[in-house]
Design a protein around this nucleic acid. Structure first.
Length: 337
DNA sequence: AACAAGCGCAACCGCCTCATA
DNA sequence: GTATGAGGCGGTTGCGCTTGT
């Protein structure tokens, strides 16, 4: 049975449409003095002929005192793109990283401004991957540069002498740790998926793109092999995904890829899967490291939050923009055929 | 100046989740 | 275990403003 409207039989009497200044004042005045513990009863108590849901939306999206209005800064825009590439359309989650901005505002901004920009650059605004249907390819040189950057990072990560007793590489060497290394691996995987020529049809008219893809894949694979060797990277499962054997899920008897299937189709990919796995395991997720040590992470406010944070904030993480890989994506990295 | 088209954004709609009885 | 309802979320709509012709 369908749920009745939130305002029930009073619906036809309830005002809809734009709010007047007088209504705004009433709502602000009431919430300032009494707060909002029950949105359903609030309109009546505040003297408003509005549905409680409408009041809530008006307050959270417009009247709240901590709302930052005005144009989004470049920094905010970059952050939104980064967040969206990881969280997909989870606007409320994205909004938590932008103080003063509402999910609705971010959603509108993305759908009107950012989406257009990405499309113009040949990037699919939903998947954040290049749109092959528009004969547009990413600058190979830049991608190989990314792979080389990954290489040097992996060299440090793969050497156990670089870690302290906490499993973290000291700042003096590099501000990173195994988790960051895994994030980089995830990047590599994304790139491989992006450019894996086997995903192109043999009838593809874009031979040049395929050749470049093949070249890039070879470069990247060589770079990764040099950096990590078989001790760090293994070929996992039939999909050819690269795995990091240091991190093993509790259920899996063999290495579980941290990096495959990060396709954002369901808004999360592998990281979301790990979270779900953690939830199904009483919010715990055990990490078994190559040196025999283990650590258990919790889902809520725990390791996965940290993971997410790292993926979102790390300047070196390619798909997330920042000052590292693809730092100039905004300006020049796309080459039109 | 008048009109059409496009754009931006506030607001709404309907579904989902979760707490509670 | 189930039903119910409030709150939350993402998708969509529609109106007013701007820009182009």
């Amino acid at each position: 049975m369908a749920r009745p409207p939130c305002c029930g039989e009073d619906e036809e009497k309830v005002k809809k449409g734009p709010w007047t200044a007088e209504e705004d004042a009433k709502l602000v005045d009431y919430i300032t003095n009494k707060g909002h513990t029950n949105w359903k009863s609030l309109p009546k108590l505040a003297g408003l002929n509005r549905c409680g849901k409408s009041c809530r939306l008006r307050w959270t999206n417009y009247l709240r005192p901590d709302i930052k209005r005005g144009k989004f800064s470049d920094e905010e825009e970059r952050l939104i793109i980064n967040l969206h590439s990881v969280l997909s359309n989870k606007w409320s989650r994205i909004a938590t990283y932008l103080p003063g901005r509402t999910d609705n505002e971010i959603k509108n901004y993305y759908n009107t401004h950012i989406r257009k920009k990405l499309l113009q650059m040949g990037i699919d605004p939903q998947t954040h991957k290049p749109r092959t249907d528009h004969r547009q390819i990413i600058n190979l040189t830049q991608l190989i540069g990314a792979a080389q950057q990954l290489n040097s990072m992996m060299m440090l990560s793969s050497n156990s002498n670089n870690y302290n007793t906490n499993g973290i590489i000291p700042d003096g060497l590099l501000t990173t740790n195994l988790h960051e290394a895994a994030a980089k691996v995830q990047l590599a995987q994304n790139l491989l998926h992006l450019f894996n020529p086997t995903t192109a049809t043999s009838a593809s008219p874009f031979l040049a793109q395929q050749q470049l893809s093949q070249l890039f894949c070879n470069q990247l694979i060589n770079t990764l092999a040099t950096a990590g060797g078989s001790s760090l990277m293994v070929n996992n499962s039939s999909n050819g995904a690269l795995a990091m054997p240091g991190l093993v899920s509790p259920e899996a008897s063999s290495s579980t890829s941290l990096v495959h299937n990060n396709n954002n189709v369901n808004g999360g990919g592998e990281m979301e899967r790990m979270k779900m796995e953690a939830e199904n395991n009483n919010n715990n997720y055990q990490q078994n490291f190559s040196d025999g040590t283990t650590s258990t992470a919790t889902h809520v406010g725990g390791e996965y939050e940290a993971w997410e944070k790292m993926l979102l904030m790390d300047d070196d993480f390619a798909v997330l923009g920042g000052s590292g890989f693809f730092s100039s994506w905004k300006d020049d990295h796309l080459v039109l055929e």
